Simulated assay, not measured.
Amino acid sequence: MTAPAARRIVLTGATGQIASLMARYLAPRHRVILTSRTARPGARRPGLTHVTCDYGVYESLVDAFRGADALFVVTNDPTRPEHDRNVVRAAVEASVGHIVKLSAAAVLDSAAHDLITEWQRGNEERIRASGIPWTMIRPRSFMSHALGWAPGIRSGGTTYALHPHSRNACVAPEDIAEVSARLLGDTGHHFRSYQLTGPQPLSAHEQSAVLSQVLGRPLVCRELTPEEAHARYARRYSPAMADALIASAGRQLAGAKAHTTDTVERLTGRPATTFARWAADHRERFA
């Protein structure tokens, strides 16, 4: 059922957390090429090479992808869909053997029609139409989003959230990375999709309580109004992205993100990481 391990694996999004985590699993046994738009001189180690390429320039992607037995695709800008088109076009031209796409669990939600979700649906459709064997990874929210609270925790012992009692079955980035690394180049997972969640749905209020225990100090979770939340998002993202995040929070309030799966355990042989375990492992980033 399983083909020989891929010899050359290309990971896009080298500056993001998932690709860098995947490299830890893959580099000891494979030739791994990390690609990004910016140079990473410190990324060199045995089995690992970094290639700088521009996702807006199709030809540079072809050169980076050529000869890849498997390609991990992560893109992060719904306002630049040409990047996604270029990635798939280059993968076809370079005769990539297998694509593993980091998508999102929201694509399965019939009530989700925001910018981000529709963008991910389009990305999935493009890959399915490419003719290249594919596997879709659809995670819930990353546990690492809680790191956005770190400045408020350090300065005033406060976390902030829109709808702080709504629950999300968030998943550890380390679990996403391990699952994705296991699937690359494995013919037994061709043309399959996997929804990844953590072991339990938690609210921002409950996550804050866990962080309080881990840090050994009291924390207060303050509720943001939709206007306050939108203003916070708009400081980092485009207005359209901010609108999408507000819509996503509304679906969470309606219970759309509380469902859990056992996918991490089925594919790795170990239970999915709890938020308490993840928070303890990253304690120094909050302290």
Results as ranks from 00 to 15, higher is better:
residue 203 S to N: 12
residue 32 V to P: 05
residue 247 A to K: 08
residue 140 R to K: 13
residue 272 A to G: 11
residue 159 T to I: 04
residue 68 A to G: 03
residue 231 A to R: 15
residue 238 S to G: 07
residue 126 R to I: 13
residue 251 R to F: 12
residue 279 A to P: 00
residue 94 A to V: 06
residue 269 G to L: 06
residue 96 V to W: 07
residue 136 M to L: 15
residue 113 H to R: 11
residue 37 R to H: 14
residue 153 I to V: 15
residue 90 A to V: 06
residue 154 R to P: 01
residue 21 L to T: 05
residue 235 R to P: 01
residue 216 G to W: 05
residue 212 S to V: 04
residue 120 Q to F: 13
residue 149 W to C: 03
residue 214 V to G: 07
residue 76 N to Q: 08
residue 134 W to D: 01
residue 150 A to L: 02
residue 158 T to P: 00
residue 204 A to T: 12
residue 172 A to S: 15
residue 95 S to E: 15
residue 238 S to D: 08
residue 18 I to W: 05
residue 182 R to D: 00
residue 249 A to M: 14
residue 72 F to M: 01
residue 215 L to V: 09
residue 73 V to C: 04
residue 4 P to R: 12
residue 147 L to H: 08
residue 135 T to C: 14
residue 217 R to K: 15
residue 54 D to Q: 09
residue 145 H to G: 07
residue 246 I to Q: 12
residue 235 R to Q: 15
residue 148 G to N: 14
residue 133 P to L: 09
residue 108 L to Y: 08
residue 15 T to G: 08
residue 14 A to Q: 04
residue 100 V to L: 07
residue 48 L to Q: 11
residue 278 W to G: 01
residue 51 V to F: 06
residue 8 R to Y: 14
residue 204 A to V: 11
residue 179 V to C: 04
residue 2 T to P: 05
residue 117 T to S: 03
residue 20 S to L: 13
residue 177 A to V: 08
residue 185 G to N: 10
residue 189 H to Q: 09
residue 117 T to N: 03
residue 41 P to Y: 07
residue 132 I to F: 09
residue 210 V to G: 07
residue 159 T to G: 09
residue 267 L to D: 00
residue 120 Q to H: 15
residue 257 K to I: 00
residue 102 L to H: 13
residue 29 R to W: 09
residue 157 G to A: 10
residue 229 A to L: 06
residue 247 A to V: 09
residue 47 G to T: 11
residue 262 D to V: 03
residue 213 Q to C: 12
residue 149 W to G: 00
residue 65 F to L: 02
residue 1 M to T: 13
residue 142 F to C: 03
residue 139 P to L: 06
residue 163 H to G: 00
residue 273 T to I: 02
residue 108 L to C: 10
residue 199 P to V: 14
residue 187 T to L: 12
residue 43 A to P: 02
residue 255 G to V: 02
residue 146 A to R: 13
residue 44 R to L: 13
residue 134 W to P: 04
residue 22 M to G: 10
residue 178 E to Y: 03
residue 34 L to W: 05
residue 164 P to W: 13
residue 277 R to H: 10
residue 206 E to M: 11
residue 170 C to Y: 10
residue 136 M to W: 03
residue 191 F to Y: 14
residue 161 A to S: 12
